[in-house]
Amino acid sequence: MLTGKGFESAFRYIELFWKGTATTVALSALTVFFGFVLALFLSVLRLSKNKPLKWLAIGYVELFRATPMVVQVFFIYYVVFAGVKVLPGFKFLGFIAFDRFFPAVVALALNSAAYLSEIIRSGIQSIDIGQTEAARSMGLSSRQTMQYVVLPQAIKNILPAIGNEFVTIIKESAICYTIGVQDIMSAVNSVKGATFRIGEPLIIATVLYFCLTYPTSKLIAHFERKMSHGDQSK
């Protein structure tokens, strides 16, 4: 049962929710950045003529898409970073514990890179081969052709799918509370422990997540419209 009193006691911990929101935003933004860079790299490997590199990229993508995210997060935190042991324990922005935050970014970025790279690959493959031929016939190298001709068009085509993936990252980042990252979900857990109420903090978390994801998808849609000039014929 949700009660006014329940909300009242949950709101006494609102500070935790604000910090949690900042953590979730920082976590998602860094994941998007590193995930995207890694995904670009993976998709180029995936399309390369070099067989071992190609199979490496395929293996990576399949592994990360075929295993649960919670397993990946635990594995990165408890196994990979356990070996590092001395991750600096400083607080990032004053309240984000780096030794938990950093493994979370790594795990989420590795995971989303696998999904994003498949989106980028399909985008690259959707560009007519004639575009590449025209660019190469003028003497552009394969790298320049990718950078100036293929990728700008591919990214425009896949912007909706990328936007979806960004929104997904914000939502899935909630899993990181399981390794002690103090994000929005972790605030829910703390409030539950202190007040013995779960419904009210969950409602607050729902509102917060919605306020993050909805504007993000609207923003992407805005860019999509902005970039669609000069392509009315297609």
Binding site: G130, S137, M138, G139, G230, D231
Partner: peptide, 29 residues
């Protein structure tokens, strides 16, 4: 690439770059 620069090619389906203006198409290479 050095040799291709000296051989211009025109295609059946034009293959202009749709995301670039006419002048940008021409000045890219």
């Amino acid at each position: 690439d050095e040799h291709r620069q000296k051989m211009g090619m025109v295609f059946q389906h034009f293959n202009l770059f749709p995301h670039l203006s006419v002048v940008e198409n021409m000045t890219l290479a």
